[in-house]
């Protein structure tokens, strides 16, 4: 288990214990984190699990592929910290990760 913190646009913060190997969209849905829908089930087809990754953690993530990169262009508030939560898999190296859900995704 690792700890992942999801912070909503209104500042509400939730610490979730996530089993290693689980993607962070599934973890959010299972734990009722608002603002992460995962409409396509985690195949990077819908961009409804957009999150902003805190700067300290961005270099620790696997780089994004072309599909994820393109799908993020569908979101309103993309910036350098943007990722799809379904494409981030929980690993020991990510223990303590902080994600913020974007304003438009609620």
């Amino acid at each position: 288990m690792i700890k992942v913190t999801y912070i909503e646009d209104n500042g509400t913060s939730r610490d979730i214990d996530v089993e290693e190997g689980t993607n962070l969209m599934d973890a959010a849905v299972d734990n009722l984190v608002p603002g992460i829908d995962g409409d396509c089930g985690g195949v990077s087809a819908c961009a409804t699990c957009h999150v902003h990754v805190d700067a300290a953690w961005q270099d620790k993530l696997e780089p994004m592929n072309e599909t994820e990169d393109s799908m993020l262009d569908l979101t309103d508030s993309r910036d350098d910290s943007s990722r799809l939560a379904c494409q981030i898999t929980a690993t020991a190296a990510l223990d303590g990760l902080v994600l913020r859900t974007p304003t438009g995704q609620h």
Partner: peptide, 9 residues
């Protein structure tokens, strides 16, 4: 071709 999908949308 995800980029084409996105731009076409």
């Amino acid at each position: 071709r995800p980029a084409e999908f996105v731009v076409a949308k």
